[in-house]
Amino acid sequence: MKYLVMIQGTQADYEAMGGKPSAHSPAWSEQDLRAMFAFMGAVSNDLAESGELVDGQGLTEPARARAVSAGPDGRPVISDGPYAETKEVLAGYWVLDCESLERVTEIAARIASCPGPEGAAQYPVLIRPLQGTGGGDA
Rank of each mutant, 00 (worst) to 15 (best):
M1Y: 02
M1D: 06
Y3R: 02
L4Y: 07
L4V: 15
V5K: 06
V5W: 00
G9R: 04
G9K: 05
Q11Y: 07
D13N: 05
D13M: 03
Y14G: 01
A16H: 02
A16W: 00
M17I: 00
G18N: 15
G19K: 01
A23Q: 11
A23S: 12
A23L: 09
H24A: 09
S25Y: 05
S25R: 04
S25G: 04
S25H: 09
A27D: 10
E30Y: 00
E30P: 01
E30G: 12
Q31W: 00
D32T: 00
D32H: 12
R34G: 04
M36A: 13
F37N: 08
A38Q: 13
A38I: 02
M40Q: 10
G41E: 04
N45T: 09
N45A: 15
A48D: 12
E49S: 11
E49R: 15
S50W: 10
G51T: 02
G51R: 01
E52S: 06
E52G: 04
L53H: 07
L53Q: 03
D55I: 10
Q57T: 10
Q57W: 02
Q57D: 14
T60F: 09
E61S: 15
E61Y: 02
R64T: 14
A65P: 02
R66D: 03
A67C: 01
V68Q: 02
V68G: 10
V68R: 07
G71A: 07
G71T: 06
P72W: 03
P72R: 09
D73T: 06
G74I: 05
G74S: 08
R75E: 14
R75K: 15
R75D: 09
P76C: 09
V77A: 13
I78T: 13
I78R: 04
S79W: 00
G81M: 10
G81S: 09
G81L: 11
Y83M: 11
Y83A: 11
Y83C: 08
A84T: 12
K87I: 08
E88M: 05
E88C: 01
L90I: 13
L90W: 06
A91L: 06
G92I: 01
Y93I: 11
V95R: 00
D97N: 14
C98V: 04
E99R: 10
E102S: 15
E102I: 08
E102F: 00
R103T: 00
R103Y: 12
V104R: 06
T105R: 13
E106Y: 07
I107G: 07
A108F: 08
A109M: 12
A109F: 12
A109T: 12
I111D: 02
I111Y: 06
A112L: 07
G116A: 14
E118I: 08
E118W: 01
G119M: 08
G119T: 08
A120P: 09
A121D: 05
Q122E: 09
Y123G: 02
V125C: 12
V125N: 14
L126F: 05
L126Q: 12
L126T: 12
R128H: 14
G132T: 03
T133L: 02
G135D: 11
D137V: 13
A138E: 12
A138Y: 13
